[in-house]
Design a protein around this nucleic acid. Structure first.
Length: 882
RNA sequence: GGGAGCAUAGCUCAGUUGGUUCAGAGCGUCUGCCCUACAAGCAGAGGGUCGGGGGUUCAAAUCCCUCUGCUCCCACCA
């Protein structure tokens, strides 16, 4: 293979990805090996790859590739979720563009369009993941709304219903009166809006429904809802209003009598301190209503108009009604005053921009208390580990304050709730229409299939995804805890690690733990690695509006997938937000190029079989072998703690600094010269290990080079090689080498200062016990013509420097400014004296010597000794200079 | 309003149970180099009173208190 001077990923990546796919290297089947399983956090089927996915899936891929190379049977299950809200909205938008309105379609017609859309556009993201190098087992690709998984979801609903955990309740939803649909919280945009604050007089009733001359004033922004009032609330702590206790007041205009109640929800000092309670049209009022058993009177219809229950202004739009009623209240003398300088947050529909109307509606709920208790224990008792563990607090807080889960959604795209209504309004819950009919017949023998009406609502998408780690392997399991898990589920469950964002810790992670506990009696994973949010370099969230979200595929095209992966991981410590900057990808690209060129260098060497391995090479090989082994252990430790970016950085530095800058420079033959066989073999073997170490992070370039490194057969791949194991290392050798490197650095610094070219060989004199076996290394890398061990430097015409406690000297005739040297030495002497002083102060402190561990005291004594000897040396030098 | 977290070099972060030569890395910055692997590079250098204040200790970036600034989650105000 001819190698170009720079690495070109475009010629490499598709080639190897196809090779991996063709050989089914990603595919896993149960066998005798230990499994290592990850299920993908299913992206929206409508989604396209963004930087958050890149981060998440890069981490997943690193973990899965590492596990595969560690000899595990690695299985990464990919797939998508049907994302009810997002998908339904996209389909609606598309249809609107064609002039088709959802309201004009039947459910079946709409779903047909939706499936067509899904087939056409869905799953793009999975194709994109391949570009990133994701080694998913594509044969196992799943979709949360495919028939099998839908069955799992429906069965689960029936199971919990029959267990008594699912019930029908009332809940306030965000209603869009224009589109006539309920909105999810995410679809409501809150905007600060200037409004009028109306102060209304409510007269005290005389007990017979007639007003007295006493009144109270309440403040409201929605005077058109007063006809739905159920009470006026005061704070029990507020003595000013105690005279109202037990009294009743009359709603203006309609003169309906409502009680004064006391509730601590009312804030003292806000408004007038008297709150009109309207349970049907305000979330908080509804809660108060529940506490005080107040009647619920709904006076606004689906279109936002007052209905006949309002008694007055029937048929008027809520805003028109507001204007009119204010006038009426003014005329009746019930308007105290209007404050027009009031601002508050109002929810608007994301799509129609209509003001959202809180509306009571029937919904399905899943009781969470028991499930949450078990799921909390799973984390508390360490069966599921959160990384970083600061999220344990957050998790606990949520689980202890859990609300019942509202699982119904007023949409069509999703799993329809398997509740079937009889004509009389009673209902049965069964998995299929057939079973429902049988059950219904027990209630009413005359009932026929066509009489049964299935619930219109679908289930929350999370109600599918919480089954994901189970259902992807065995869709028959959820809903049937007594079912015997199939082969796949028994083998792959529980999965090992889950990588996801902290924003869905509760929505998804906690609920998966609940489902796992419920159906498998086992948590679905052992470790949950929570990533941060990807932000731009200024710390802003990535968003389409800001245009600060780069397209990952463009980046991959420009820099290569390996570079993008590196760029993401470099700054990705767990739990911290990621500040993405293209600079990091460039750094990754540069690293690819470094690896590439180090290979070009080695590849260009010619070997001379008869050549003896020289001392420098012998040492270099021994040293790098030690260095490598030490690094392998460090990397393993980082991985075991999920410190992926630290693991990457360790290998990065090992490759770039130790291998390229030091090792290769040491063993590199002079231009045109051959290298000895032993050194070449060692060099190639090191390179092979380095490639394997970095492969999980950089799959493409490593495969490309590994394939070229030695003759390979078809079907061989670096991805199925073993992670290099850490061998022994020689501490003394490493330490001696550090000294040698310091000496080299010292000489290089002198060259820089004195403008001496690296080509001019220098003399070096050494005092003290600097290890002699390191001389050849220093000589080669610092280009010295001689290294001499002396008692005395003999002359002062040169530059001295210290390496640890060894004194070194480079004679430089005529190049040295004596005054400058003296200054430098004096500064150093000053510093050493001060250092000695602090050390001695510590040592003379009896408390220190008495309390501190012996080891620490010994260190201090060593410091004192070293310092003393340095001072003596410096003083001698100064004397000779002067 | 309720809860959680963060603050270490210009930037992004390490710093394990307080204690091995007055705090480390990567990137960036500055200086000198195209020395035939790589200028997407090489060599060298500078840069931090560990947010402020107080306390515990022989010893604090590390433990405690307090102040300041920022972030996130939950509930959202008639």
């Amino acid at each position: 293979m001819e190698l170009s001077p720079t690495y070109d990923p475009s010629t490499v990546e598709d080639k190897w990805y196809s090779y991996w796919m063709d050989h089914k290297f990603f595919h896993s089947e149960p066998d005798s090996r230990t499994p290592y399983t990850i299920v993908i956090p299913p992206p929206n089927v409508t989604g396209i790859l963004h930087m958050g996915h890149v981060l998440n899936n890069t981490l997943n891929d690193v973990l899965i590739r590492k596990a595969r190379m560690d000899g595990k049977n690695a299985c990464w299950v990919p797939g998508t979720d049907h994302a009810s809200i997002a998908t339904e909205n996209k389909v609606i938008q598309k249809l609107e563009a064609e002039g088709i309105h959802k309201e004009d379609l039947t459910r079946e017609e709409f779903l047909k369009y939706a499936w067509e859309w899904k087939e056409e556009h869905g799953g793009i993201i999975l194709k994109q993941l391949r570009k990133l190098g994701a080694s998913c087992d594509w044969d196992r690709t799943r979709f949360t709304m495919e028939p099998e998984l839908t069955k799992a979801v429906v069965n689960t609903f029936v199971y919990f219903y029959k267990k008594g955990l699912i019930y029908k309740g009332v809940r306030m939803v965000n209603w869009d009166p224009e589109r006539l649909t309920a909105l999810s919280d995410e679809e409501v945009v809150y905007k600060t809006t200037k409004r009028s604050f109306y102060y209304l007089k409510y007269f005290i009733s005389d007990g017979k429904g007639k007003p007295t001359d006493k009144y109270i004033v309440i403040a409201t922004t929605r005077p058109e809802t007063i006809m739905a009032d159920a009470a006026v609330a005061i704070n029990p702590e507020e003595e000013e209003f105690h005279w109202l206790r037990g009294k009743k007041v009359l709603i203006p205009l309609i003169n309906r009598e409502i009680p004064i109640i006391e509730d601590s929800y009312v804030k003292i000092g806000f408004g007038t301190g008297c709150l009109k309670v309207t349970p049907a049209h305000d979330v908080n009022d509804y809660a108060i209503g529940l506490r005080h058993n107040l009647p619920v009177l709904d006076i606004i219809d689906d279109h936002g108009r007052l209905n006949e229950k309002a008694k007055i202004l029937v048929g008027e739009d809520r805003f028109a009604a507001r204007k009119k009623i204010v006038k009426m209240l003014e005329e009746s003398g019930n308007l105290d005053h209007i404050d027009n300088n009031y601002e508050s947050e109002i929810g608007y529909s994301e799509r129609t921009n209509a003001v959202v109307e809180p509306k009571l509606s029937a919904q399905w709920f899943l009781k969470m208390d028991e499930l949450a208790k078990t799921a909390l224990a799973s984390v508390d008792e360490g069966r599921v580990k959160l990384i970083p563990d600061k999220y344990r607090n957050t998790y606990r807080h949520w689980m202890e304050n859990v609300h019942d889960w509202c699982i119904s959604r007023q949409l069509w795209w999703g799993q329809r709730i398997p509740a079937y209504y009889l004509p009389d309004g009673r209902y049965v819950v069964e998995s299929t229409l057939q079973e429902a009919l049988e059950a219904a017949k027990k209630l009413d023998p005359s009932v026929k299939a066509e009489d049964l009406r299935q619930d219109e609502d679908v289930l929350d998408t999370w109600f599918s995804s919480w089954l994901w780690p189970i259902s992807v392997f065995d869709p028959d399991m959820p809903g049937h805890p007594d079912h015997k898990p199939n082969r796949d589920l028994s083998y792959y469950y529980p999965t090992n690690d889950l990588v996801t964002g902290p924003d869905i810790l509760f929505f998804w992670v906690a609920r998966m733990i609940m489902a796992g506990d419920e159906f498998m009696g086992k948590e679905p994973f052992r470790n949950v690695y929570l990533t941060g949010i990807v932000r731009d370099s200024q710390g802003r969230k990535m968003s389409k509006q800001l245009g600060n979200s780069p397209d990952p595929l463009t980046l991959i095209q420009k820099y290569g997938a390996d570079s993008v992966r590196i760029g993401m991981l470099l700054c990705a410590s767990a739990g911290n937000d990621i500040f993405y900057d293209e600079k990091q990808v460039i750094q990754g690209r540069n690293f690819c190029n470094k690896i590439w060129n180090s290979y070009r260098l080695i590849k260009g060497w010619t070997v001379d079989e008869k050549l003896e391995q020289n001392d420098v090479n012998k040492l270099a090989v021994k040293w790098f072998d030690s260095k490598l082994n030490q690094a392998i252990e460090t990397v393993e430790d980082h991985y075991s703690k999920f410190r992926i970016s630290d693991a990457l950085m360790t290998i990065y530095k090992l490759f770039w600094n130790e291998y390229c800058s030091w090792y290769l420079e040491m063993v590199k033959p002079a231009y045109g010269e051959p290298v000895d066989k032993a050194t070449l073999e060692a060099t190639l073997s090191f390179f092979d290990k380095l490639l394997k170490m970095i492969h999980p992070v950089m799959p493409f370039i490593t495969e490309e080079l590994w394939q070229d490194l030695a003759p390979r057969k078809d079907g061989e791949t670096i991805m199925r090689e073993k992670t290099p194991a850490a061998g022994e290392w020689d501490e003394k050798l490493l330490s001696d080498f550090d000294s040698a490197m310091e000496a080299v650095n010292g000489i290089r610094a002198i060259r820089q200062q004195k403008q001496i070219s690296p080509k001019n060989a220098l003399k070096l004199m050494v005092k003290g016990g600097f290890p002699e076996e390191m001389y050849p290394v220093v000589s080669k890398l610092a280009n010295t013509e001689s290294i001499e061990k002396v008692e005395d430097f003999g002359s002062s015409d040169g530059v001295s420097f210290m390496v640890r406690t060894y004194e070194m000297f480079v004679p430089l005739k005529g190049l040295v400014d004596v005054d400058e040297e003296i200054k430098k030495l004096e500064a150093e002497l000053e510093y050493q004296k001060k250092f000695l002083e602090t050390t001695r102060k510590k040592l003379s402190n009896e408390n220190f010597t008495a309390h501190a561990p012996e080891k620490v005291v010994a260190t201090e004594r060593k410091k004192e000794q070293d310092s003393l000897s340095k001072i003596a040396t410096l003083e001698a030098q100064l004397k000779s200079l002067k």
